[in-house]
Write a protein that binds this DNA or RNA. Structure first.
Length: 442
RNA sequence: GACCCCAUCGUCUAGCCUGGCUUAGGACAUCACCCUUUCACGGUGAUGACACGGGUUCAAAUCCCGUUGGGGUCGCCA
């Protein structure tokens, strides 16, 4: 039993597309599960459209996803001589011929081309009925470079690829490639055509459906393990009801035969949910490390690591992506806060507030220990003295201190914000409500 | 249009290969309730699907055929 050899063959004519990434993932998972090899082949025969920066981004995205490849990537642009020699052989046997500087392969004109697809079973094409198969296939362009279908066959054979796992949009390329294998005397690999990732309207996922570049997901604060988990569940499942599966477990459980034949619609909400699950599982120091770049991007520099980790702990349960963090925690970093209109309207209209804020500011100012427990105890005593309920007191105070109606636990927030800021903001709020009342209410 | 592929809740899916154990299971989303100082997390519950029509069979989501629907491909792009 020869060991499994698969490949992922991107063209550096764009970023790593989410659909391509899933194809790469299935190849990688299959190779690792079978303890085979996963190669990278760069299909850069299109001189016009191939760009170095695209290549760099694709490689970077693959690394980020954790899809490590074996050996060095093979570049088709460096193998023109090999393709040319192979084409010469065909010409020598009169199986191909030059025509206006291009070379065409004599396609068989009658009969059928059939193959066993690992997922679909027998697939066959009647050569007399399929329009695109009627013409002789161009294998070398007049600019001297090989065509896709030719280079693919030469390389897959030369690299000893045992399984070609690719999108099912390639099914129609297979009957063009098979006669080439035969003419060249190569044994064809096992083909496995997997379904595409679809957009909401069930057409192949593209930019108009939303983010398609892996990099965009990375930048939006998606965790790579969550994306890998999500992508693996698009068109495949372990067979039980398991939703959370890490990389190692994926490798262990992945079976090509369990891949579905139906295209799957990409669902952003479920990805977010899954990402949230992974965020929740992270150790605080790790999560903090991952969050720091997002803070820096916003210009929020934090020198007190211990404080930051306490803050991260407060938000770990409520963020779905890393990029949300600076927004949700904004009031911890900005000196000045502005009141959210709706929040102010709803929670800053109680006539007792000016006095309550003043008293509360004074109380906090006098506190020795500024920990959550002490703050909560003293705060509750104050509420009682003021004759206010928890809701009547806490909601307005939250708006006073954070500017919004949503935040982590109030007492934790006050504690972490620190005495100085909390007191200052409460006094400002006292002035604010007084002024508003003088003007005739909010 | 021709050729090819596909068809279970709105979405991702289990079950289909090896027909009965299925009043079709889980997850996301939605709704309700619980927890609670808000949001979120967590918990409980609800709504919700075998595209249709023929066969085969004692029995079909599961096998076969057709219809319909959707998608993909028809380049000297990859």
């Amino acid at each position: 039993m020869p060991s499994v050899k698969v490949r992922f063959a991107p063209s550096p004519t764009g970023f790593l597309h989410i659909g391509s990434a899933r194809t790469a993932l299935f190849n990688w998972l299959f190779a690792r599960h079978e303890q085979g090899q996963f190669f990278l082949r760069i299909e850069d025969t299109d001189k016009e459209r191939s760009k170095k920066e695209f290549l760099d981004e694709i490689l970077e995205s693959l690394k980020w996803l954790g899809l490590d490849w074996d050996g060095e990537p093979v570049f088709q642009s460096a193998r023109t001589a090999f393709y040319r020699q192979t084409a010469e052989k065909l010409i020598g046997k009169n199986l191909a011929y030059p025509e206006e500087n291009a070379v065409r392969f004599r396609m068989p004109k009658t009969g059928k081309v059939a193959f066993q697809d690992l997922l679909h079973g027998q697939i066959e094409f009647d050569l007399t009925q399929h329009i695109s198969l009627a013409e002789d296939l161009v294998i070398f362009k007049s600019d001297g470079s090989p065509t896709y279908n030719f280079a693919v066959v030469c390389d897959d054979a030369d690299m000893g690829i045992t399984h070609v796992i690719r999108g099912d949009d390639h099914i129609s390329n297979t009957p063009k490639q098979l006669p080439l294998y035969e003419a060249l005397g190569f044994r064809p690999p096992v083909f496995c055509h997997i379904p595409l990732i679809l957009g909401e309207d069930r057409s192949r996922m593209s930019k108009r459906h939303g983010a398609t570049a892996i990099r965009e997901y990375q930048e939006a604060g998606c965790l790579s393990e969550a994306l890998v988990n999500y992508l693996s569940l698009l068109g495949w499942s372990p067979g039980n009801n398991q939703e959370i599966i890490g990389r190692d477990e994926l490798i262990q459980k992945f079976e090509l035969r369990r891949v579905l034949k139906t295209g799957a619609v990409f669902n952003k909400e479920k990805l977010e949910w899954l990402n949230g699950q992974y965020v929740r599982k992270l150790a605080i120091p790790d999560l903090t490390d991952k969050l720091v770049p997002y803070l820096e991007k916003r210009g929020y520099a934090v020198s007190d690591r211990a404080w930051l980790e306490r803050l991260v702990l407060l938000f770990q349960e409520r963020i779905f992506s890393l990029a949300q963090f600076p927004d949700l925690a904004q009031f911890f970093f900005e000196d000045k806060i502005t009141y959210n209109d709706e929040a102010a309207k709803e929670f800053l209209k109680d006539g007792r507030l000016a006095k309550a804020f003043e008293s509360y500011a004074a109380l906090l100012e006098g506190l020795g220990d500024f920990n959550t427990k002490t703050i909560e105890e003293k705060s509750r005593t104050l509420m009682k003295d003021l004759g206010m309920s928890g809701k009547e007191f806490i909601h307005p105070c939250r708006v006073a201190v954070t500017g919004r109606s949503v935040s982590p636990g109030f007492f934790e927030t006050v504690s972490l914000l620190g005495k100085e800021k909390a007191v200052e903001r409460l006094r400002q709020a006292a002035q604010f409500v007084q002024k508003k009342r003088a003007e005739g209410g909010i």
